[in-house]
Amino acid sequence: DTLHVTQDGKHIELRGLSEEEIKLVEELLRRGRKVEEALKIIEELRK
């Protein structure tokens, strides 16, 4: 699936995420994380 995010005035499209990963990214962003940080966390969880 694809998640569309706008952060720091930039539109970012995150592709290839599972539904659970999207929920996790959304939660991390709500808690003030940056998109880059959220993606690093997803990458770690995929290992």
Rank of each mutant, 00 (worst) to 15 (best):
19 E>W: 10
34 K>Y: 13
38 A>H: 00
38 A>L: 15
18 S>H: 09
44 E>H: 07
36 E>L: 14
36 E>N: 08
15 R>Y: 15
16 G>F: 05
16 G>E: 14
17 L>M: 07
38 A>E: 00
23 K>L: 14
29 L>M: 08
29 L>A: 02
32 G>Q: 03
47 K>F: 09
26 E>N: 07
2 T>N: 09
22 I>C: 07
16 G>T: 05
3 L>K: 07
18 S>N: 12
23 K>M: 13
30 R>A: 13
22 I>D: 02
36 E>D: 13
26 E>L: 15
20 E>L: 09
19 E>C: 12
19 E>S: 12
23 K>D: 07
4 H>W: 01
18 S>A: 10
45 L>R: 11
1 D>R: 02
43 E>P: 01
29 L>G: 02
15 R>F: 15
19 E>H: 13
47 K>I: 11
26 E>H: 12
13 E>M: 02
21 E>Y: 03
14 L>K: 07
18 S>V: 07
24 L>A: 07
3 L>H: 12
1 D>T: 02
9 G>W: 00
18 S>E: 09
26 E>S: 09
26 E>G: 08
27 E>K: 07
43 E>I: 04
18 S>Q: 09
25 V>H: 01
42 I>F: 03
40 K>G: 12
38 A>K: 00
41 I>K: 10
30 R>S: 13
26 E>D: 08
13 E>A: 02
27 E>Y: 05
10 K>I: 15
9 G>T: 03
27 E>D: 14
23 K>S: 11
43 E>S: 05
36 E>M: 12
23 K>F: 12
33 R>W: 13
47 K>M: 13
1 D>I: 03
9 G>N: 03
21 E>S: 02
36 E>P: 07
23 K>V: 13
19 E>G: 11
2 T>E: 08
8 D>P: 02
18 S>D: 13
15 R>K: 15
28 L>F: 11
3 L>D: 05
42 I>L: 12
28 L>V: 12
41 I>Y: 10
33 R>C: 10
14 L>T: 11
30 R>Y: 06
34 K>Q: 08
21 E>F: 03
2 T>R: 07
8 D>M: 01
26 E>F: 13
42 I>M: 08
35 V>C: 02
45 L>A: 13
32 G>V: 01
15 R>N: 15
12 I>R: 01
28 L>C: 01
42 I>R: 00
6 T>L: 11
17 L>T: 01
39 L>W: 09
39 L>G: 03
33 R>A: 14
15 R>G: 15
38 A>R: 00
44 E>C: 08
40 K>E: 11
12 I>P: 05
32 G>I: 02
13 E>H: 06
34 K>G: 08
3 L>C: 14
20 E>F: 13
42 I>Q: 00
23 K>P: 06
11 H>F: 11
30 R>D: 11
6 T>W: 11
32 G>N: 08
